[in-house]
Design a protein around this nucleic acid. Structure first.
Length: 213
DNA sequence: ACATTAAGTGATT
DNA sequence: AATCACTTAATGT
């Protein structure tokens, strides 16, 4: 168990106070997980919260089709904030956690979490800090998704417009489109340029010709 | 010729 | 993706 101690200290020693570390050693369950294992799956009941000692875990969302989307990665010294919210809210897991590498972690029983929140300052700030960074990563992911979908939205918008008009030429400005799609003119200009390079449309002033209908 | 508006670009957050 | 700053091109008066 001294190996476990060393890793716990080196991963969380600078974050958590000594007394808390002792409690973690007492109550936490040390686990080793091999690569590509599902640690937590969608709809799993959450009974413990993982603290990562070594390795990396990816947190995924899954849609109806089983398509996966990586939300973010957890590394040494991290914990899963979504799991945290599940622990506190007593709901089932809304995400899937898969080990990206071989992973060593400590499972903290769900019940201890709330206790420590009031008992240890360092625990409280660790949780808040971790929540904060996870939310940021999540927002970043959302931005990326939105970015990837904007070109599709734009093309659909153009096709719809051509359909309604019964004309493959659309008479409008980039600014107008940007307002319709609730984005900025610059973004539209760039995406249109991209579509033109892909040969899907032909651009000219105040008009766009849709080639791929 | 000058002003206005549309569109393109690079850099930054 | 959004915003800024700036350039270039097209049009109107």
């Amino acid at each position: 168990m001294s190996d476990f101690n060393t890793k716990l200290i080196s991963s969380f020693g600078y974050l958590l106070e000594g007394e808390l570390l002792k409690e973690i050693q007492e109550v936490g369950v040390y686990k080793t997980i091999s690569k590509n294992e599902i640690i937590i799956d969608v709809d799993d009941a959450i009974k413990a919260m993982p603290l990562l000692l070594t390795g990396a875990i990816k947190i995924l969302r899954e849609d109806e089709n089983g398509d996966e989307l990586v939300l973010y990665y957890l590394e040494r010294g991290d914990t899963c904030a979504i799991t945290l919210s599940c622990c506190l809210g007593q709901t089932k897991s809304k995400i899937r956690a898969v080990s990206e590498t071989e992973v060593e972690l400590v499972m903290i029983p769900k019940q201890k979490m709330a206790d420590w929140l009031s008992a240890y300052n360092s625990w409280q700030s660790f949780i808040l800090q971790s929540y904060h960074s996870r939310v940021n990563e999540l927002l970043e992911a959302v931005d990326t998704i939105a970015f990837l979908k904007m070109d599709e939205r734009l093309f659909k918008y153009l096709k719809d417009k051509a359909m309604v008009t019964g004309n493959d030429a659309i008479y409008t400005t980039h600014k107008q489109i940007s307002e319709d799609l609730h984005t900025s003119r610059v973004v539209i200009s760039r995406l249109l340029k991209k579509l033109e390079n892909e040969g899907k449309i032909k651009l000219s002033r105040n008009s766009i010709k849709v080639i791929e209908l």
